[in-house]
Design a protein around this nucleic acid. Structure first.
Length: 558
RNA sequence: UGGGGUGUCGCCAAGCGGUAAGGCAACGGACUCUGACUCCGUUAUUCCGAGGUUCGAAUCCUCGCACCCCAGCCA
């Protein structure tokens, strides 16, 4: 065996951040690395966050460092404990462990406040009385420099007194802000005297009512990183313009460590929406049943849909990490679940759109049981007994009176194998007055019983079935993409909502064993797809299944 | 016509001066009691474009072009 360094961990695809980390470790710049995943608890985590989680926690895991979970909770008006609780649960569900390193930016508020006073003392921050509109007007534009606030040159003493009174609650929301004194003419707008603190008389979900001034992201994030000893602070591209400010604060404050920020491109997925704003809107407008609606790209939604943590992790590895804006096709993540579920999901038979199949030459009250393997490639998954009888449910579209070209299933005169049972020959169909097929008629060949010597006669098609007498009736929810176009248009993205993103089937017929399936149990319904017992709505004896994803289907219809 | 980024196969993505990895998709074929799975095989003389440097460039230089981000007291 060769002695490569990373024997114990699977080889991860190279990306520029891994390379940087590897170099920093090799050069001795860092002895160990510390990363962090810093969500704001103002919404549920989605698949885009999963990319960041896998990156940050994955780096820590693969390079023997650690990764912190830190709530970036600097804006109490948007944050709730419901969100932070859900975030923790989702990170754990995804398979990552912060091992005690859970922090809140709000726990650093006192330190941050002290640092703000220090900046005031050194003449690098000032209290501004301008209101929001005036500040905006003074900021200038992309091509024109800004103008300095008339309050920019207050004395240190006055600034200090005012800032303390801000903290003391003497002023109403919006009356004053603390600003960094940098450069109103900077071509980087973030450096045009950015706001450090604003007055918000709001109760904080974590810090309670101790504060009425709150630091802005820019004044909190880098210092939080420094406090925690973060070595590699990884964020998305839109923060690149903030890096000079991130560094300005670190340069001007006596921070204990010097983290370095790196940016990567956020995930875009086709046929869905990803921004928290849009996701929240879908929830609020009732377009979906909640954050965990199985159509949502949230982690709780994907989970309820039947996605596995493994599949999501594989997805995050597969798409890579880069700096170029990219759109990942939905089919990639779908393929990842198929891959995972193909390995681990036991097979079962379920008829979604049932039509009767009557075997004319089978005894009317006859019944037998077939022992069927739960997985064709994995005998260790065992087998189960599946009852059989004269009347079965089969899939309506497995019968075609006039078969289209290439059709390999039931059609008058044709033979088909009933999976794990007998070969039957179609002899016709019963119809109602309107000509609708109410039952397909066939005869069976007792010699072809599955497993019997000589029963392997070749037939073109194999179909699944469920004994009518033993079937359990279930509700099955068929999900499709939320958005009907690859990348929804800007403002009227709601117009691109897929009207058929959910299809409710209430009279599905499943093999009896499935009546007892527990929440989140996953199965492959043969020939159809992967299905998951709904976490919330399923009842014993009256199961509800969500379709996670269909099987691939090379049978090109039409 | 301010600043910051990005452009390598249909979609991602390695590559960091030595002669275009890999994944997904696609397309052939084999296998199959799931039209699934699996398995073989094929798929960029070319790296946004044009010049230049070099024995040699996707990699260095120059000039263009396209796209993304920034003017919240959001993160």
């Amino acid at each position: 065996m060769s002695n490569n360094s990373e024997q114990t961990t699977p080889v991860q695809p190279a990306n520029f951040i891994r390379n940087i980390v590897a170099d920093d470790l090799a050069s001795g710049k860092h002895e160990t690395i510390v990363t962090r995943f810093p969500p704001e608890p103002n919404g549920y985590l989605h698949i885009g966050h999963a990319k960041s989680i896998c990156l940050n926690f994955g780096l820590a895991r693969d390079f023997g460092g650690r990764c912190h979970l830190r709530f970036d909770d600097t804006n109490p008006v948007k944050e709730e404990v419901e969100y932070s609780e859900s975030i923790k649960e989702s990170v754990r569900w995804l398979g990552f462990d912060w091992g005690g390193h859970m922090y809140y930016a709000s726990d650093y508020f006192e330190q941050l406040y002290q640092w703000a006073e220090q900046l005031i003392q050194s003449g690098k921050a000032y209290v501004d009385d301008l209101n929001a509109e005036q500040i905006r007007a003074h900021r200038g534009t992309l091509t024109e420099p800004g103008k300095e606030s008339p309050f920019r040159n207050r004395s240190v003493e006055e600034n200090l007194e005012l800032f303390r009174r801000m903290r003391g609650g003497e002023f109403p929301d919006g009356a004053k802000v603390l600003r960094a004194k940098i450069d109103m003419a900077s071509p980087n707008i973030n450096l045009r005297d950015p706001v450090m603190y604003r007055i918000l008389h709001a109760v904080h979900p974590h810090a309670g009512d101790q504060w009425c001034i709150y630091p802005m992201y820019d004044f909190a994030h880098g210092q939080s990183d420094a406090i925690e000893g973060i070595t590699h602070s990884i964020c998305t591209l839109e923060f690149e313009d903030h890096k000079p400010l991130y560094e300005w604060f670190l340069d001007n404050l006596p921070v204990p460590n010097r983290p370095r920020q790196y940016e990567f491109a956020r995930l875009n997925l086709t046929y869905t929406v990803m921004s928290k704003r849009k996701l929240l809107q879908l929830v609020q407008d009732g377009d979906v049943s909640g954050w965990d609606d199985p159509r949502m790209p949230t982690l709780v939604g994907l989970r309820r849909r039947g996605y596995t943590p493994e599949a999501i992790r594989t997805f995050c590895e597969r798409i890579g990490v880069g700096r170029s804006d990219s759109w990942i096709d939905m089919s990639i993540i779908e393929e990842c679940v198929r891959e995972d579920l193909n390995q681990k999901a036991p097979r079962a038979m379920g008829v979604l759109r049932p039509v009767k199949l009557i075997i004319d030459n089978y005894p009317a009250d006859g019944t037998e049981e077939f022992q069927v393997a739960n997985h064709p490639q994995q005998p260790e998954l065992g087998s189960r007994a599946v009852p059989f009888g004269k009347e079965l449910w089969i899939e309506a579209d497995d019968f075609q009176e006039i078969p289209e070209k290439g059709f390999k299933r039931l059609t008058p005169g044709a033979e088909v194998r009933l999976r794990a049972a007998y070969i039957v020959k179609c002899i016709g169909a019963d119809k109602d007055a309107d000509g609708n097929v109410v039952a397909v008629r066939c005869t069976y060949d007792p010699e072809t019983k599955s497993g019997l010597p000589g029963a392997e006669r070749k037939v073109k098609g194999v179909i699944h079935w469920v004994s009518a007498r033993h079937a359990v009736t279930a509700e099955v929810r068929l999900y499709d993409r939320l958005i009907s176009v690859p990348s929804p248009s800007g403002d009227d993205w709601k117009g691109d909502l897929n009207p058929d993103s959910i299809q409710l089937l209430t009279d599905c017929k499943l093999e009896p064993l499935l009546a007892a399936a527990g929440a989140e149990e996953r199965f492959q319904f043969e020939r159809q797809g992967y299905f998951c017992v709904d976490l919330k709505d399923s009842q014993p004896g009256r199961p509800v299944f969500n379709r996670t994803v269909t099987l691939r289907d090379s049978w090109v219809k039409k």
